[in-house]
C-alpha cells in the first residue's frame, strides 16, 4: 500500500479527531524510519522532528524492556503526550489536562487503526487483477479507438461507491506532496477514491442520460518522447465503467479539475503500464500538470465528456 494513500486518509482522520475533540491539541503520525506520515496543520514540523528524536533516544535504550516500544505516555503538569505504535506507525497525540482521557483514547487508538484497516481493505484483490485481461501487457502502439473497443469486454472489479446527493461535490482534500523524488515503488492496487453516482438528469431523444460520474484519481507523471502533451492516461477499468454507463455514446475527452479549482479538458487513453493499473491513478503529461497546477501525488477530479 502506498504511504501516500495512508497519508491522505490519516491526515483527514487527524483533522476530524481535532474537530470532535478540541482538547487534543496536536496529532501526528510518523513511521519507524522517522518519516512524518501525517500531521495536523497546527504542529510545526520542527517540533515533530524534535519529538521523534526524543522518542528515538528512549527506543535506543529500551532493550531491557524488549526493544520495540509500544506506548509512551508522558503526563505533564498541563497535559499529556501519548505515542502509540499502530502497525508500522507511531501515532502521537497531545491533549490538555482538561481532556477526557477515555474519550481521547477511543478517538485516537480506535479510530486510527480502523482507518488503517479500511484503507487496507478497500484495495481490490491482487489475484482478481491477475485474472483480468488488463494484467497483461498491451502493445505500445494503440489508438484511442482500439482502447474503447477493448474496454467493454472487461468486467470492472470496482465496487459501487456510496451514493451522493445530487450536486454534492467531493470535498476538496489535500494530500502531502512527496517530500523528495524517490525511485518508483509499485503501489498496491486501490480503487478510485471517490466517485459520484451518476444522476439521470439530462434528456436526449426522450431517453435519460446519466450525469457524468466524477472520480478522484491520484496524479502520476507521464513522460516520454512520443507522449502527446494533450492526452492523459486513465485506468481501463474506469473507462470500461464509462462505456457501460453510456453504451454506444462516444467518449473522447475528459474534464479534469484540480483541488485548487483549475480545470482542463483533454483526450485520454488507457494506462499501458501495468504497474499503474487498478491503483486509482491518472497519468498526466507535464504540460497539463502545469495547466492544472497539480503535481504527482495530488488528487484531481475526473469526469468523462459525454456529447
Amino acid at each position: 500500500m502506498s504511504n501516500e494513500v495512508y497519508a491522505f486518509a490519516l491526515k483527514n482522520t487527524l483533522k476530524e479527531i481535532k474537530n470532535v475533540c478540541p482538547d487534543v491539541t496536536n496529532t501526528f503520525i510518523f513511521e519507524e524510519n522517522t518519516k512524518i506520515l501525517a500531521k495536523d496543520d497546527e504542529t510545526p514540523e520542527k517540533t515533530i522532528r524534535k519529538t521523534i528524536e526524543a522518542f528515538n533516544d528512549i527506543t535506543e535504550r529500551a532493550d531491557t524492556i524488549g526493544g520495540a516500544i509500544e506506548t509512551v505516555t508522558i503526563q505533564g503538569a498541563e497535559g499529556k503526550v501519548t505515542i502509540t505504535r499502530m502497525n508500522d506507525f507511531y501515532l502521537t497525540s497531545v491533549a490538555s489536562k482538561e481532556a477526557d482521557e477515555k474519550y481521547v483514547n477511543t478517538l485516537t487508538q480506535v479510530l486510527i487503526p480502523i482507518v488503517i484497516k479500511l484503507v487496507d481493505e478497500i484495495q481490490p484483490e491482487e489475484n482478481a487483477k491477475e485474472k483480468s485481461p488488463l494484467a497483461e501487457p498491451e502493445p505500445e502502439e494503440e489508438t484511442n479507438e482500439a482502447d474503447q473497443e477493448e474496454a467493454p469486454a472487461y468486467e470492472p472489479e470496482i465496487e459501487e461507491p456510496p451514493e451522493q446527493e445530487p450536486g454534492e461535490e467531493a470535498a476538496p482534500q489535500e494530500i502531502p506532496e512527496p517530500e523528495e523524488a524517490e525511485p518508483y515503488e509499485p503501489m498496491e492496487p486501490i480503487e478510485p477514491i471517490k466517485e459520484q453516482q451518476p444522476q439521470e438528469t439530462e434528456e436526449e431523444n426522450g431517453l435519460q442520460i446519466p450525469e457524468p460520474p466524477v472520480t478522484q484519481l491520484i496524479v502520476e507523471n507521464l513522460g516520454g518522447l512520443l507522449v502527446p502533451s494533450d492526452t492523459v492516461r486513465i485506468d481501463n477499468a474506469l473507462i470500461a465503467q464509462w462505456n457501460d454507463l453510456y453504451g454506444d455514446k462516444e467518449i473522447e475527452e475528459v474534464d479534469i479539475e484540480a483541488l485548487n479549482g483549475k480545470t482542463t479538458r483533454c483526450k485520454f487513453k488507457n494506462i499501458k503500464d501495468s504497474k499503474y493499473q487498478g491503483k486509482g491513478i491518472i497519468q498526466i503529461p507535464e504540460k497539463l500538470q502545469i495547466t492544472l497546477e497539480a503535481t504527482k501525488g495530488e488528487l484531481v477530479m475526473v469526469k468523462p465528456v459525454v456529447e
Binding site: 516500544i69 509500544e70 499529556k80
Partner: peptide, 12 residues
C-alpha cells in the same frame, strides 16, 4: 505541558 510528572513506557 509544564514539568513532567510521570512517564509510562510499554515495551514488547
Amino acid at each position: 505541558l509544564g514539568e513532567p510528572q510521570h512517564i509510562f513506557i510499554q515495551g514488547k
